[in-house]
């Protein structure tokens, strides 16, 4: 099973790469067929990626969401899924050209990590952990998409000529709204992530909140996005300011996910 996973994972990387290539061709070559090919390959990649994750789950005999490799892979999967949903709902194919490099890089990062299956220490064997990590994937995926949309917004802000991209990107108000909706999704799921994590910690360690660096940084991320939500209500903080905030917020997300593990020691050092 793990061998199959390995092979699938390689194919996923290639598929994502091709998907990105076609999305780029769409932006450069301006033919509708390219965008549909990019989309098709993204869907194919996502299906294979799902299969790879399931294979790993069967091979390891547990939920494959417990170490940096598994989480990085799932994170890329989440971003791919959520961007796909946005592309389909809002018929926003050019988004693929911006989102695909991010989930491709994420998948590539996962490929660099140690992917050996290790047995879990007893504290990690909990149903709450499964919910905790699954909601984290959706949340991080949504923040990742908000980051991408923030970049698209800033880019659009710079576009003056009425070129292809100008016609094939939603107007600024709509981009802003899409960014807001993906932050909202992220905040809702980050809240659930933090709370299920707290329930798990209460059962495993007897404390639902102990201010370990990972917990603290997830709280910081949560507060940053809370500030974003409030600023948006006020005039003058729409559009550009919100886009920049979404980009900074995602920096926080990445720090919580990677930075805390490598830079600050704590209870969460396993994943």
């Amino acid at each position: 099973m793990l061998r199959i996973e390995n092979t699938l994972f390689t194919i996923v990387l290639i598929t994502y790469f091709l998907s990105m290539a076609f999305y780029f061709l769409y932006v450069v070559g301006k033919k509708k067929i390219y965008s549909r090919l990019g989309l098709g390959l993204q869907i194919l990649g996502l299906v294979l990626h799902t299969a790879a994750i399931i294979c790993r789950g069967i091979g390891a005999g547990r939920l494959p969401l417990t170490n940096q490799y598994e989480f990085a892979s799932a994170f890329a999967w989440g971003l791919c899924l959520i961007s796909l949903i946005f592309i389909l709902i809002y018929r926003f194919y050019t988004l693929g050209a911006f989102a695909s490099p991010v989930f491709l890089v994420m998948t590539g990062y996962a490929a660099l990590l140690d992917n050996q299956v290790r047995e879990l220490m007893p504290a990690l064997r909990s149903g709450w952990l499964g919910i905790h990590v699954s909601t984290a994937i959706i949340s991080y995926g949504a923040f990742g998409l908000a980051f991408v949309l923030g970049i698209v917004f800033l880019l659009r802000d710079k576009l003056k000529a009425r070129g292809f991209l100008d016609r094939h990107l939603p107007d600024k108000e709509k981009l802003d709204m899409l960014g807001y909706r993906s932050v909202a999704l992220g905040v809702l799921f980050l809240t659930i992530t933090i709370i299920t994590g707290a329930i798990w910690a209460e059962q495993a360690w007897g404390r639902y909140w102990s201010w370990d660096p990972k917990e603290t940084w997830s709280l910081i991320t949560w507060i940053i996005y809370a500030i974003y939500l409030h600023l948006r209500i006020r005039r003058g903080y729409h559009g550009k300011a919100a886009a920049i905030f979404a980009i900074i917020g995602f920096g926080c997300v990445l720090f919580t996910y990677v930075g805390v593990n490598t830079l600050i020691p704590g209870l969460h050092s396993y994943g």
Binding site: T216, I223, I224, V260
Partner: peptide, 14 residues
């Protein structure tokens, strides 16, 4: 206040 809280948490975690 929320901004100060972010700074405080950052200091406390670093």
């Amino acid at each position: 206040l929320l901004g100060i809280l972010v700074v405080a948490c950052t200091a406390g975690s670093l």
